[in-house]
Simulated scan of single mutants.
Amino acid sequence: MSSVTSTERGRAKAERHDALLRAAARLFAAHGFDGVSLEDLGAAVGITGPAVYRHFASKRALLGAILLRASDDLLAGGQRVTATTHDPAAQLRELIDFHAEFALADADVIRVQDGELAQLGDEDRHRVRRLQREYVDLWVGVLSRLHPDRPREDLRVRAHAGFGLLNSTPYSVRALAPATPVHADTVHDILADMAYAALTAR
């Protein structure tokens, strides 16, 4: 086998892997984990149901991959944001912008996280929870510099409330359409401004 052919096959496999993740997120969000079959997943990307096993060991492993990738991406992105400036107000604004962009781009993943976390295997659930705690701690660290007089648990509540606002996009945007179509940038700006005002309030 030539190196070119091997590279092409590797690229095709990676693309199918990503397509399965996107399709599974969409289907799980719409129908629930138990309402989606392997045949549904395969058909969504043009393969048979059993061919899904070439990419993931099980449907549950596919669910784990969706939520682990999202958690990894959020933590890595948050770390990049906080490394760009040492001003806490600027850090918070950029964290909010980053998370709002994620929420708009990956609304299906948010719905899956909300409804299907309990379906994960124990190992994946522990890993997702650990990554999420680290992400929350990142926000709490920034908030502690803006509110040095506030106890850490107060700041943790604020962070989760901010996530709740920003993660409302799968529901708030759907509630507006189709009668009142709103551009994604407008939704981003509304939610980002609201989150910043709430998190910086004394």
Rank of each mutant, 00 (worst) to 15 (best):
M1F: 11
M1V: 14
T5F: 14
T5M: 12
T5L: 15
R9T: 09
K13S: 13
E15C: 03
R22A: 14
L27D: 01
F28W: 01
F28N: 06
G32F: 01
D34Q: 11
G35F: 11
V36D: 02
D40F: 01
A43E: 08
G46V: 03
G46Q: 03
A51L: 05
A51G: 08
A51Y: 06
R60N: 05
I66E: 00
Q79N: 10
R80D: 15
H86S: 15
D87E: 15
D87N: 13
R93Q: 13
E94C: 05
D97W: 03
F98W: 01
H99T: 10
H99Y: 14
F102G: 05
A103N: 08
A105L: 12
D106T: 11
D108R: 04
V109R: 06
G115M: 09
E116R: 04
A118D: 15
A118Y: 09
E123G: 10
E134K: 09
V136G: 05
D137H: 09
L138E: 00
R145Y: 11
H147G: 02
D149C: 02
R158H: 11
R158T: 01
A159W: 01
H160S: 06
A161W: 04
S168H: 07
R174L: 14
A179D: 12
H183S: 12
V187T: 09
H188R: 15
A192K: 05
A192N: 06
M194L: 14
A195V: 02
A197Q: 09
A198K: 07
A198V: 12
L199Y: 00
